[in-house]
Design a protein around this nucleic acid. Structure first.
Lengths: 158, 158
DNA sequence: AGTGAAATGACCATAAT
DNA sequence: ATTATGGTCATTTCACT
């Protein structure tokens, strides 16, 4: 189902996770490959879905989002259809920068940004609590990003 | 303290958050600029720290990490020094792909990956619970990534 | 290895302040 | 005048075959 990763592939993945915009030729040099085979490997990794995309990390505060928070949501037990629609609505909110379904006490973990505390309040009150199927909503503001979005470790073998 | 963002800057940020490896010339075309001024703006955004970096998004399962989890940590009240050292240790763990300090019930929210449930257990037992200053550790496995790492919205004005 | 495309820097034009 | 914007062109470097 998945071609095994060569040592070069692994080096490529390590480098690209910390510098996603490096040129292929600079990448090739770091990896210890000629440009041409390096590019072929990179394309293959993209093609195979090992690399799912590239993203610029933007400073949220510069964009006017002074508040970052996590919202812990418990759902009511209800027909499956409700849950699907709830999740679709949630995904549609642009304040939601990530959302995970969890096992255990909390059903949904929502990572959100907002301009300020007031607009975050508006968001939770008007857009989260009003979703049908939501039993409980608790929010915690992020005080500091201790470790922001670190790379996934790339072991020498899978 | 921060140069205001031009409409072109905002378009650049929107595009680069969903395609961080787009060539400058393709970016320029989408933005509606010539390549040269587009590149100048891009460099300035990096220089000013508006863009904090670029990252390839890698499929964790391909790398052998079948398990993704959030760990909710409560700390004991203790001297500030302990907390700093605890946080440093936490940052050093490569299983930890993100970590936030939160206000409220939970003090630290840790986002982690592991090869399987057993090795996640080893991680929580031997590396988290043993940290001095930790009062309580609770873990929830991620069942699904409902909305994985969406862009931060870029308003037309800040 | 070669060729077409992209990146990059020097320099100019225009408009708003 | 100064600042901020964008454009053109020439050169080097890169991507890709």
């Amino acid at each position: 189902m998945q071609r095994p990763l060569s040592p070069s592939d692994r080096r490529i993945l390590r480098i690209l996770q910390s510098d996603g915009r490096i040129t292929n030729s600079a990448l090739a040099e770091k990896v210890g490959l000629a440009a041409s085979p390096c590019l072929r490997r990179l394309k293959a990794l993209e093609e195979d879905g090992v690399i799912e995309g590239y993203r610029a990390m933007v400073n949220r505060k510069v964009l006017g989002f002074g508040v970052e928070a996590f919202v812990f949501i418990k759902l009511e037990q209800s027909e499956p259809g409700w849950r699907t629609r709830l999740v679709e609505r949630l995904k549609g909110y642009e304040e939601v920068i990530a959302c995970h379904a969890l096992a255990g006490e909390i059903d949904l973990l929502v990572h959100a940004v907002a301009r300020d505390i007031e607009s975050f309040g508006e968001f939770t009150m008007n857009r989260l609590l009003t979703l049908p199927g939501v039993a409980d909503v608790r929010s915690s503001f992020v005080l500091s990003n201790i470790k922001p979005m670190a790379p996934i470790p790339v072991p020498d073998h899978s």
